[in-house]
Design a protein around this nucleic acid. Structure first.
Length: 307
DNA sequence: GTCGAGGTTAATGCAC
DNA sequence: GTGCATTAACCTCGAC
């Protein structure tokens, strides 16, 4: 578990690209209880999946840490959230700065939401042609749909987990709505939902916002749009659950009807067979009687001849 | 100040 | 070398 490698110092931090605040940070502002390095050389370049997963874990732990009201330090005054995450990452072999973590998180969320949006909104199109899941798409197909081309399932799952936990912890204190506290995979990936082509290639409904009794006089159109989106997504989710239930109900009804028809058909067949057997029995009986009477008659005739 | 969302830019790698 | 795709990083805005 422990990372054997020390922070790999990049050989040279020559040509920079818009370097964030802290290429080498004294970390004097670190308010976490974790590692506080005197100076750090942050890794550049693309994020590996392992780094990404570490970041996601850090984010989840940070959310949990902050969600607990009673714990020692939910958020110390002045504490920089992303500094805590940076420290966690640093302790787990991901040598990135807080800004890098923040940016990466933003970009991850964008991709995640695109995929989730696609999965949930297109899943219903089974009527005409089968829904092509993001995960079974080719690269170029993903591109066609303006989706990230290489989101890995592990990362998606991990993000999903974090967002679900967050959503649940946000909802629980206010109102207990067990209906949507499902397991991580459920919400976005149950692709059989029924989103009625609602429109708007907008970003995803993050959460079904519950506390919105605030005054909305000063909200500009953008804010309104966001709220409408949230409400819309809540309605969509409810509608999809309802549609799912109705659909399965309808399917069960149809199945039962088919079973009844099948039974009826079988009963008729049996009836017919029985009739056939009866008819044949009677015919045989008549033939036997005829034979018998013929035999009796010839017997009588013989008797008279002898006398 | 923090956070999320969204737009944008710059660096990088790859194919031709 | 050029064009394109990808992605890290920057920037702005609004909400809290």
């Amino acid at each position: 578990m422990s990372n054997p490698l020390p922070p790999p110092p990049p050989p040279s931090t020559h040509h920079h690209q818009h370097q964030p605040l802290n290429i080498i940070t004294p970390a004097t502002t670190s308010a976490t209880t974790m590692t506080s390095a005197p100076n750090r050389e942050y890794r550049k370049g693309n994020w590996t999946i392992q780094e990404t997963l570490t970041l996601i874990t850090a984010k989840r732990l940070d959310d949990e840490r902050r969600a607990k009201p009673s714990t020692s330090s939910p958020s110390k005054p002045g504490e920089l959230r992303w500094k805590w995450i940076e420290n966690y990452c640093w302790d787990h072999g991901c040598f990135r700065s807080q800004n890098q973590c923040n940016d990466k998180w933003d970009n991850l969320l964008r991709d995640y939401k695109k995929v989730r949006q696609y999965q949930s909104s297109h899943s219903q199109s089974q009527s005409s042609h089968p829904f092509l899941s993001y995960w079974s798409m080719e690269r170029h197909q993903r591109k066609l749909h303006n989706l990230p081309t290489n989101m890995s399932p592990e990362v998606f799952e991990a993000l999903n987990d974090v967002l679900q936990r967050k959503l649940n912890t946000q909802q629980q204190p206010h109102l207990h709505q067990p209906s949507f506290s499902q397991s991580p995979e459920q919400l976005p990936l149950k692709t059989d939902q029924n989103p009625p082509e609602v429109d708007a290639p907008v970003t995803v409904s993050e959460e079904s916002d519950s506390s919105e009794t605030e005054s909305s006089e000063n909200l500009d159109s953008k804010t309104k749009r966001k709220k409408v989106r949230k409400i819309g997504s809540s309605i969509m989710r409810s509608a999809s659950v309802l549609a799912q239930t109705l659909k399965s109900c309808e399917e069960n009804k149809e199945k039962r009807h088919q079973q009844v028809m099948e039974l009826e058909h079988r009963r008729l067949q049996i009836e017919e067979t029985r009739n056939e057997v009866n008819r044949k029995g009677i015919t045989d009986l008549v033939a036997a009687m005829t034979n018998l009477s013929g035999a009796i008659q010839s017997l009588i005739a013989n008797h008279y001849d002898q006398t």
